[in-house]
Design a protein around this nucleic acid. Structure first.
Lengths: 159, 159
DNA sequence: GTTCCTGCAAAAGTTTTGCAAAAAT
DNA sequence: ATTTTTGCAAAACTTTTGCAGGAAC
């Protein structure tokens, strides 16, 4: 395969990823970089499914097999770089998770699928309280509210 | 098929279910009764997947096809009798949802899968606030906290 | 009698896996 | 040089669907 110019050029994001991967015995590959770049590159790409990732990469000419996408997502979830979301549909979605990124939650329109993010310190307070009350070690929490967005309310007519 | 003795005997639970189903043009069948009875009968059966329902019914000699289980679950979710949960694994889980049952949330041990329920009025307060803030019609909300239960913490050893 | 429901088997959709070749350490 | 990773195709799994016979209204 011809050089992809990724692993050799000085790239702070790549160095960061490489360090995290190597620390746990994983390796930095161009595929893993490209997948992570999708999340950090496009502010509109907050929530992506495996298939969407595969499609977007294909659209920009990167031919990565779908199994590699799944395997990369698992690795990044285990490393704490991504979080797995169950937003509604059958498939799983992933989003960037970082020490930088505040914990946030989701408001989903069940009609058009639009996803809005929000934060509220009470959610963290409740998860802390419950995990402590039951003696759990807390890992993470997901809060998803389902409803119908203002735009879709206008389009729904009573039968 | 021989009589199953279900639809004919006076049965308050069946009458209740029949009324709810008929109101929307659905019919009371012995399969739907048996599935709902699983949830209300066994206090330990709070969270069941389609496959678990199918298996439990098979264990007690009731041969219901898996497609019927899925179709019945969809009907009951649409009628507001059951709620669909995304607890962690690949499959979906279902639990009784009633005007009686308070809104509650889940604390899941990612190691052994144990599910604990809890309530907190702050969760409802936050969902109300966010749906109103964004102009959404609120349908429902799911809050799931993941962690490691006290029992499993003792069994985990550092590698 | 009409309409809805069930069971079966087949299909669809997402996710996982075995294995040889390729890439990263 | 060693160990991990990729791509491919096939498999596994959950969930859905078409259709003919059966059950509920």
């Amino acid at each position: 395969m011809e050089g992809n110019g990724f692993t050799d050029c000085a790239n702070p994001q790549a160095d960061f990823l490489k360090e995290i991967l190597n620390r746990e015995g994983f390796r930095l590959t161009s595929q893993r970089q490209k997948i992570l770049a999708l999340f950090s590159g496009d502010p509109l790409a907050h929530h992506l499914s495996a298939e969407e990732i595969h499609q977007r990469l294909a659209d920009q000419g990167e031919k990565i097999s779908i199994s590699t996408v799944y395997r990369a997502l698992h690795v990044m979830v285990n490393l704490g770089l991504l979080q797995e979301l169950e937003l509604a549909e059958d498939r799983k979605y992933y989003e960037l998770l970082g020490p930088i990124m505040d914990q946030h939650h989701h408001l989903v329109c069940v009609h058009c699928g639009e996803v809005t993010e929000f934060e509220d310190p009470r959610i963290t307070a409740v998860s802390d309280r419950e995990t402590q009350a039951w003696g759990f070690t807390r890992l993470n929490a997901q809060f998803t509210v389902y409803g119908i967005c203002p735009h879709c309310q206008g389009h729904l007519v009573a039968p």
